[in-house]
Write a protein that binds this DNA or RNA. Structure first.
Lengths: 262, 262
DNA sequence: GACAGCAGCTTGTCTAGATGACTAGCTGTC
DNA sequence: GACAGCTAGTCATCTAGACAAGCTGCTGTC
């Protein structure tokens, strides 16, 4: 006798004024929370839920799409609905751009990923001049044109981050910064070699749901938000020398910051 | 003749293999992005969309729930579907817990809110002893029991943040820290008075979709993620003296950090 | 003028189907 | 063994309709 897939599920309360599809979602959510369905497990199929609860298929689908919106499950066409596996998260230390790290040569992303035993990749490299948006221009002190460096980062084949660096054109033209590969230590190392000694970074963090474009680029499951980080690099003369606009898959990252108490 | 509510919308492409409900969502999204529907505007009613596109009501609802999941629109029962208004965001400076700010007396939240012209409130105050979770215990160095201080913060009547502070019981009992109102400057000021001079804070940031409980507590619209921040306060002897677990409505906050470049 | 009640709008929930498309495993042929 | 084709099971999309429930403004009564 095969184990009943719906075994962890109870019955509906017809006297409750909570909508049926919410009750079903509640029971599935509870079963997941309590570990009766584990990460990667297949949930009962829509047909099984229809039979178990005696409701129509649309009602069941309504429940499942609720859970999908919460980021608890993912559905795979032709296969089933699965408890969303939580990928390992990458911790971003707040000192990852400290000068001492730049001396190693490799990029922060590569070093950290390899240390964590993951296979890092960088793709979609695009380097070109453009007119900055209002926001970027303001942050950089109003240059007419900037160099934009776009890239996408992947860990073990999974895209996790999409970033664009903007550098005022007068700082970048004719330097390795305008090359596809800026060399060891990245553009911060190059900026310092060019005499722009870095003083501090400002980081601005937001979280929101992704645009359809971002869903595609980062291959996001539904119910996964993005972290939007905008970092501005200032040199010791107070000039903003770079703005880096980063969109990260929120389920792939934990950001760490250390703040002095004085 | 009244203006057609569906005026900004085009027609479907029956040859496209993009699902009809996605095409409808695309058109609505574009109209919103381009400002043809502005913040707070009412979208065409489901009936109007049904007539405009010649599809069934469930298809239209499917489109709308897609946009709701993206956080672009909110629906109000009996009224309509509206472009989600973006509330003003509160910027959290990374030095808001610096010692110099504690000398003012009021809490950081109150000071900042009033400076921004908003009406701050704090409610759901609960102060009690409890056994810490595994995670909290580890962060605090393994105390058997802790003092938990829970509160919810509101701006202009809107809940924006839900926070719990955990303090090892041996630091808190018999001090103002265990009182409902810990006095001017908050518990950090009290901890320093008790000889625990603060050295630094560690902050850990995640973003995710809210649990149903969090949706209720923070009155979140669907499609709004939460920012989960865990701050650990360390004294100059290296001891963790407090952990603050905060869940924030992501549409109400921008987090700012300043990092030295050395 | 105040107000109760109704009409007509809105979204919310649910049913009962139909068809399509993807996946995985099986089977039979070559 | 390789592989094409079949089949059963799965989710994806869409239709047509029913009733419930919340909101707003109008209307008629008092």
């Amino acid at each position: 006798m095969p184990a009943q897939a719906t075994a962890p599920l109870g019955a509906l309360d017809p006297t409750s004024d909570r909508a049926v599809f919410r009750q079903i979602a509640d029971q599935l959510r509870e079963a997941i929370d309590k570990g009766r369905f584990k990460e990667g497990d297949k949930l009962p199929s829509e047909t099984e839920l229809v039979e178990h609860y005696g409701v129509s298929r649309m009602t069941v689908r309504n429940s499942l799409s609720l859970l999908q919106g919460e980021g608890l499950v993912v559905s795979e066409h032709g296969k089933g609905v699965f408890v969303r596996p939580r990928p390992p998260v990458r911790r971003l230390a707040s000192d990852r751009f400290a000068r001492r790290h730049r001396e190693q040569g490799k990029s922060a992303f590569t070093v950290e990923a390899e240390a964590a035993g993951s296979r890092p990749e960088v793709d979609s490299l695009e380097v070109k001049e453009e007119r900055p948006s209002q926001d970027i221009a303001t942050r950089l002190g109003g240059p007419r044109r900037v160099l934009a460096r776009r890239r996408r980062y992947l860990l073990d084949g999974r895209p996790v981050e999409f970033a664009t660096s903007y550098i005022p054109l007068d700082l970048a033209t004719g330097t390795p910064i305008a090359e596809p590969n800026p060399g060891p230590g990245g553009i911060y190392a190059r900026l310092e070699e060019l005499g722009h000694r870095l003083d501090h970074f400002d980081e601005e963090i937001r979280a929101r749901m992704p645009s359809p474009q971002e869903v595609k680029t980062l291959r996001l499951a539904s119910g996964v938000p993005v972290i939007h980080l905008v970092r501005t690099a200032h040199d010791t003369e107070g000039r903003a020398v770079e703005v880096c606009d980063t969109v990260m898959a929120a389920d792939a990252y934990v950001l760490n910051y250390q703040l002095p108490a004085n």
